[in-house]
Write a protein that binds this DNA or RNA. Structure first.
Lengths: 249, 249
DNA sequence: GCGTAAGATTTGTCCAGACAAATTTACCTT
DNA sequence: AAGGTAAATTTGTCTGGACAAATCTTACGC
């Protein structure tokens, strides 16, 4: 063993890491399934628990597995997530698909703003808004993003037709309202996926996703706000026509 | 000890982590300085090396220290970087400072596009462009962002005056050129800081920073492109007036 | 059938020690 | 003074063990 260790310049935990990555990639351990316990991995690779944990710890840092005390290690995705700062590189390019996507309205419902959401939107908690759920899919049928739009109640009648109209929702709404959108503020954040987003995107709950909050305002009012949930990490590209106001460039 | 362990529900390594964070925040261990060795930390906290390493490992994951075999652990920054996907939360809010910042022109120079930059800008490699370096500072004198703008040669005469003009560079340039900017494309990525950026931002080389590439185009041409380097991680907020074209909302 | 409680499983925290590998320091030679 | 080599320092990898804490499973009682 000490002899083996001398010849092999790659650490043992890296071999295990690669073996597990390969297994996950090959589908031996499917997305959503549990990995073998640390104890059985120790037996399989004939190493101490420390070494197995070192490999698992890295798999977790890559976003490939999620580990829970008492429950085990669950496979979140087959390939590393290209975690933003940790990995220093981008994996996929959303805009590649953007041209081929379609918008699909899932649900329209009344909702009362909770404290958290109200704070984010800059509105009063307890207000009743209209909540539109929509889902974008790529041409190949892969879910790309979940969109949740908050709209004032008064647009209740025209709301369901917005998804079927040409152009983006905010444009249709502005037109219907006879208002002009003058300000867009966008916030980007990374979060663990809540249940409904995970289901819609086809990823495991708690796996990292990008949430982009956009607030479209007229000169005086917030007209529409939307949470856009994307697959986590990766490079995010934002396209727009014209940009005014102060900017870093 | 086992008695102490029973009463204390917070793991020992977390206490050490917090103690080290406090020391770093207080300046006991300055940015750029070396932390005590693992061995001396073991002595100070009376724990095994495993426990100290667990704390240091997390400090490293937060981007607070950088660890090198044989060299030691060096302090990279005083506060956690709010690493994007890893931490699931934001730390600072750039816009808080944005109102109080000033723009300062550092350097104007001719540059020939290398393959990499050319590819990013969608221009031909070997072309000669004008490169403007500028630096933003907060009111308190803390460097916030480094901006590198690429501008066509023909703007050589007016370029130096742009920083002193009111409003953003691209607006002044468009006005001077009699052109109208119709499209802005923004790419966000996380990278290890190159030397000149690290120096300007006051962070350690290789520490994670956000690089935002913005390309401002007229109907036909790329008018100006800029790399905006920000402190890593954290929440990035983008403000603009009006947004047209296709969008996710 | 359903909730509860006990037991089994699984990961989290921690120790004491050992050697390897990379870097830094000190010293010696030229 | 410059350069190279050996020694000391420091982090990386790894063992084998122990108990704690969270979760899951099973069996029991109502």
């Amino acid at each position: 063993m000490s002899d083996m260790q001398r010849r092999a310049r790659t650490p043992r935990y890296l071999e295990i890491l690669n073996a597990l990555r390969a297994d996950i990639g090959a589908g031996t351990y499917a997305v959503g399934a549990l990995l073998p316990s640390e104890a059985s991995l120790c037996a399989r690779f004939d190493v101490s628990r420390f070494t197995v944990r070192e490999a698992l710890r890295r798999l977790e840092a890559e976003g490939v597995v999620s580990r829970t005390q008492g429950a085990g290690s669950r496979v979140l995705r087959a390939t590393p997530s290209g975690v933003f700062v940790q990995n220093y590189r981008s994996v996929s390019d959303l805009t590649q698909y953007a041209a081929e996507t379609e918008l699909e309205l899932l649900k329209v419902e009344d909702t009362i703003l909770d404290d958290n959401t109200a704070a984010r939107l800059g509105q009063d908690a307890g207000e009743t808004w209209l909540l539109l759920h929509s889902l974008r899919r790529s041409a190949e049928g892969t879910p790309l993003a979940v969109v949740e739009s908050y709209v004032p109640q008064r647009f209740r009648d025209i709301a369901p037709g917005l998804a079927r109209a040409k152009g983006p929702i905010y444009a249709g709404l502005a037109k219907a309202a006879g208002a002009r959108i003058e300000r867009v503020i966008q916030e980007t954040q990374a979060l663990p996926a809540p249940r409904h987003v995970a289901e819609a995107l086809g990823v495991i709950e708690q796996s990292p996703v990008l949430r982009i909050l956009r607030r479209y305002s007229t000169a005086t009012d917030l007209l529409i706000a939307s949470f856009n949930w994307h697959h986590g990490g990766d490079r995010y590209i934002h396209r727009t026509r014209i940009g005014l106001e102060r900017e870093d460039g």
